[in-house]
């Protein structure tokens, strides 16, 4: 008992508050860092010294006119697929959340159908739609026709590609939008309703800006995946990036160098999208700062 008291007193004399603090050391972290650095150095060494990468060919084609045009086509497909896909996706999400069981079933069925059909199958189907329907017409079912079109004139390969990508994208976009909307606290809708804010304004001013916080990361995933997914439309002989490099390496057999051309372009554009995502997310997080 007495000795215990003595220890306490001696601790007090020896004022700990003036001693410097030494953080804990983590030697194994440094081992991990060294290991990864060695692997990375080996990879870079391989890229530089292995002639099979064929960098001169890469350099010749990277900014070639045909490749730049193809990059442009890829961007156009991505933008149209995203804009049309999300516009239709919002409509489908609203249908899916409708209180009317019929409209809700329509939304559900759309999502079910377009998530079930592989994108490539759908694209080939649209590409070949003119075999199925030579003419398309507007009119009353079983009644008179008002206008009628040659299908092949109405739906070009590019049109078919955009149609396919947008319809496919809309199914996924609808679920992303819906997940965002149901993540918003119920009290928000009640408060807006109690204040007598009109319905559309409730959605646009109160619900959507809050839903955006959980929509955005998923939507960015979708845009990036669509962007690379445009390579699928190469099956329709549309001159997007992946189709174009295939054409070129089919001619000159420099497969690796040309795949690298496409890869680096995909990386650059995905990086730009990710940076854009960062800023858009920061904007919608503005109420979250302390």
């Amino acid at each position: 008992m007495t000795s215990g008291t003595l220890t306490l007193v001696s601790t007090k004399d020896d004022d700990l508050s003036s001693l410097p603090v030494v953080p804990a050391r983590h030697p194994w972290r440094w081992v991990g860092v060294a290991f990864v650095l060695v692997l990375a150095a080996q990879f870079v060494h391989g890229l530089v010294t292995n002639p099979a990468w064929d960098w001169p060919t890469f350099a010749r084609y990277f900014t070639a006119r045909s490749i730049l045009t193809a990059v442009g086509t890829t961007i156009v497909l991505t933008v149209l697929g995203t804009v049309l896909g999300f516009a239709l996706g919002i409509v489908v999400a609203v249908l899916r959340m409708s209180k009317s069981p019929f409209l809700s079933a329509v939304g559900w069925t759309y999502i079910w159908a377009f998530r079930s059909i592989p994108l490539i199958v759908q694209l080939l189907f649209w590409f070949n739609i003119s075999y199925l329907y030579q003419r398309l017409s507007l009119g009353v079912p079983f009644g008179p026709e008002f206008v009628s079109f040659e299908t092949i004139a109405l739906i070009s390969p590019m049109g078919a590609a955009v149609l396919g990508l947008a319809l496919h994208q809309a199914a996924y976009a609808a679920e992303i939008v819906r997940s965002g909307v149901i993540s918003v606290d119920r009290g928000q809708l009640e408060a807006a309703a109690a204040l007598g804010i009109p319905r559309f304004r409730q959605f646009r001013r109160i619900i959507l800006p809050q839903a955006m916080r959980s929509i955005l990361p998923n939507a960015a995933n979708e845009v990036i995946s669509l962007f690379k997914g445009t390579s699928v439309v190469s099956v329709m002989a549309i001159g997007e990036l992946f189709y174009q490099v295939q054409v070129i390496y089919g001619r000159n057999a420099r497969v690796v160098a040309l795949l690298m051309v496409a890869t680096v372009w995909y990386i650059i554009l995905t990086t730009l999208l990710s940076i854009g995502q960062h800023y858009v997310e920061r904007y919608f997080a503005r109420g979250d700062r302390r």
Binding site: G187, A191, A193, A194, L195, G196, Q210
Partner: peptide, 17 residues
Amino acid sequence: QRKDIGFVFQNFNLFPH
């Protein structure tokens, strides 16, 4: 009609954004 009836909630329900 609700514009004539103010309502204050237990959990405030302010719009956080």
